[in-house]
Simulated scan of single mutants.
Amino acid sequence: MPDPLTEALLRYTQGHPGESPYMTAIEGMAILRSDHPKPPSHMISRPAMCVVAQGAKWGMFGGNRLEYRAGQALVIGVETPSIGRVVEASPGEPCLVLAFELDLAILRSVAEELDPPPKAAGEAGRGVFVTDFQGPLADCALRLVRLLDTPHAIPTLHPVIMREICYWLLTGPHGGEVARITLANGPSQRVINAMQALRSRFAESIRVEELAAIAQMSPSAFHRQFKTLTSMTPLQYQKQLRLLEARRLMISSAFNVETACFQVGYESPSQFSREYARMFGIPPKRDAKQMQAVLQRDRADSNSAALSV
């Protein structure tokens, strides 16, 4: 027998037209359903929780691969490039994931109200980890999905449930790592401030020393804590941001390879093509053509479905 969260997610996906991800009436919350294993997909992950009700996935953050399955959740505390893949799914037992954004301001507010306050992890806490999602947390997830049946109650009850989720995260087995990310002027938050500067200026040549100054750290301490939070170096982080943006420009804006290369800060098209193929497994021109063909096919399928209604 499926558990209540699995049943609720199945009912939602069966009752709503369209394809995964299903964006819900709750801002920042989506339901993902996969009837088959899927190839890896690249994305920029925002602070969020991804709760697996059925099936299994893995996420790759730099060199750190994390697998999470039914009863577990991936907690992402920092905005970072990542690769995700569905590894267990079938039409009879689809992979079902409830994903919702985490508001670090709410986490910080809840942490400040706890007595005693949560004790932050040691010098370097991870920004991404897997945790069990059972008991009170599973109950919160189920109430979030059931809340979709009463949209008029969302503005009142959604913030309450999210504060409860923050409470259980902060008081759970990974509370120290969560608390460290939320500290207003702690080392992790200062690294996140530098990370935001790197994201906004990813196409520029920016030195680690400049980022370290933003984080109020020595370059060596900044480099170490950045890698602990994201599982990649600042240079690797910037490179993945550049390649993801180049891919978006070629697919959605029809930029050619050379124009996209220069737009995101590369000076050498040959270096760009090598690093692109290393990340996505295929040269940029061929990748853009294949992805554009997929988008055109999806649009045609959507138009056919609309005409048949």
Rank of each mutant, 00 (worst) to 15 (best):
D3S: 09
T6L: 02
T13K: 02
T13D: 06
Q14T: 09
P17L: 09
E19Y: 03
E19W: 07
E19I: 10
M23R: 14
A25I: 04
I26W: 02
L32A: 04
H36C: 10
P39L: 03
H42M: 07
H42P: 03
M43V: 09
V52S: 04
Q54Y: 00
K57S: 10
K57V: 11
W58S: 11
G59D: 05
G59W: 10
G63N: 11
L66C: 04
E79M: 13
E79L: 07
E88Q: 11
P91N: 05
P91D: 05
G92A: 14
A99P: 00
F100I: 06
E101A: 15
L104C: 10
L104M: 14
A105M: 08
S109P: 03
V110I: 12
P116K: 09
P116V: 08
P118C: 04
A124G: 11
T131L: 13
Q134F: 00
C140H: 07
L142M: 06
V145L: 05
L148K: 07
T150Y: 08
H152F: 06
I154F: 00
P155W: 00
V160I: 14
I165H: 03
C166Q: 06
W168M: 07
T171G: 01
H174E: 15
H174N: 13
A184H: 08
N185V: 08
S188V: 13
Q189E: 12
Q189T: 13
R190W: 00
R190L: 09
R199I: 13
R199F: 06
R199S: 11
F202N: 04
F202R: 04
R207I: 05
E209N: 03
E209L: 02
S220V: 13
F222L: 05
H223K: 11
T233D: 11
L249I: 07
S253T: 09
E258V: 13
T259P: 01
A260T: 05
C261Q: 04
Q263V: 05
V264Y: 01
S268N: 12
P269M: 02
S270L: 11
S273W: 00
Y276F: 15
A277T: 10
A277V: 03
R278L: 13
I282Y: 06
P284W: 00
K285P: 02
M291E: 15
L295A: 12
D298F: 06
R299V: 11
S302I: 10
S304D: 14
A305D: 14
A305I: 12
L307P: 03
L307T: 10
